[in-house]
């Protein structure tokens, strides 16, 4: 059984301009010890999906529907205070900007201790010992001496390590990482991704990795969910998404990336910009930008259907299977030509 099973999740914000359907019918599951990457551009609803599961959405007027079954319990149905007990203990979260995610007026020792003592009745000394242990696990040099330091005394990469230490301090079953390396330099990103990989191996936590970077997905994911305009476009194992993509949006993302074969050529970007979630297009939400658009796409919402002959590879597109396979093969030769 999956560790987390999200079914038909919807998060609608009531704003002065109308209802923003930030998440509109998203389903996925995360297996124990595996990594699910949620990919999409800004505003695709990938962060809101995870914040909803954690009960961390801000704003007063929100409608949430659907289920998020974590280890047999629907997180969306339990009282707030019960959900709070899951947070930081069984499900942790790290965020994009390590510079602002730690409280500047408390020492990191205090912030790490807080995470321990919120969920366990331990003494300060025990919590401190645990904090040091975790700082060592995330390879922070001289861990013992750094508990009394404040966040501004750490570099960006080191702060993200502190965040990871804090997230894993109670040995959670699930770690949600929201763009954890986006604000970091590429060599620091490599350090953090490597660290997360090793920690996943040691701690056995499942990871939901929210990212816009297909490179990061390729490096780390077991399963991938591609989101477009608050809805899932495609979902499958990483091989499905990179080598047998079945949705024109996924194709567009892969084609947008500059790589060896595009040198001297124009890139093939997706035309236009993502739609407003106040008033999304009818039918398939991708149809105004889709080069393969057909009449049916403008009126009928495509089913998030299983790809024939696959395990659990789904895509929401009206195109026939033959065209999809043909396009997928073309894209593979176009974009991954340098991979031989």
């Amino acid at each position: 059984m999956a560790l987390l099973d999200v079914r038909d999740l919807r998060t609608h914000f009531h704003t002065e301009d109308g209802i923003v359907r930030a998440v509109d019918g998203v389903s996925f599951s995360v297996e124990k010890g595996k990594t699910l990457a949620i990919v999409g551009e800004s505003g695709s609803g990938k962060s809101v999906t995870c914040l909803t599961i954690m009960g961390l959405n801000s704003g007063r007027r929100i409608d949430i529907s659907g289920e998020a079954i974590f280890d047999g319990v629907d997180l969306l149905a339990i009282p707030k205070d019960e959900l709070r007990r899951y947070r930081g203990q069984r499900i942790s979260m790290i965020f994009q900007d390590p510079m602002t995610s730690l409280n500047p007026v408390h020492t990191i020792g205090r912030q790490l201790r807080e995470a321990v003592q919120l969920h366990a009745d331990v003494t300060k000394a025990q919590a401190n010992a645990r904090a040091v242990e975790m700082l060592k696990a995330v390879r922070i040099p001289r861990a013992e001496t750094r508990l009394d330091d404040y966040p501004h005394q750490f570099s960006g990469g080191m702060r993200q390590r502190v965040m990871i230490a804090m997230a894993l301090i109670n040995n959670p079953d699930l770690l949600i990482a929201d763009e954890p390396t986006t604000a970091l330099d590429v060599t620091t990103q490599a350090q953090i991704l490597k660290l997360m990989n090793e920690l996943q191996r040691d701690f056995g936590s499942a990871i939901i990795l929210i990212t816009h970077d297909l490179g990061v997905v390729a490096e780390t994911a077991d399963d991938v969910l591609v989101m477009y305009a608050a809805q899932p476009a495609e979902r499958g194992g990483y091989e499905d998404i990179f080598y047998r993509p079945h949705h024109p949006y996924t194709w567009g993302l892969l084609r947008s990336l500059p790589h060896l074969a595009t040198i001297g050529e124009d890139l093939k970007p997706i035309p236009g910009a993502p739609p407003s979630l106040l008033n999304p297009p009818a039918g398939c939400r991708f149809h105004p930008r889709c080069p393969y658009v057909m009449d049916i796409c403008t009126t009928v919402v495509p089913e998030f259907a299983l790809v024939p002959g696959s395990g659990d590879h789904r895509a929401a597109c009206h195109l026939d299977e033959e065209t999809k396979q043909r396009e997928a093969a073309t894209i593979l030769t176009e974009t991954l030509a340098d991979s031989a």
Partner: peptide, 8 residues
């Protein structure tokens, strides 16, 4: 948000 995510 971090503090809330910790379960405070």
């Amino acid at each position: 948000r971090t503090a809330r995510a910790k379960g405070a």
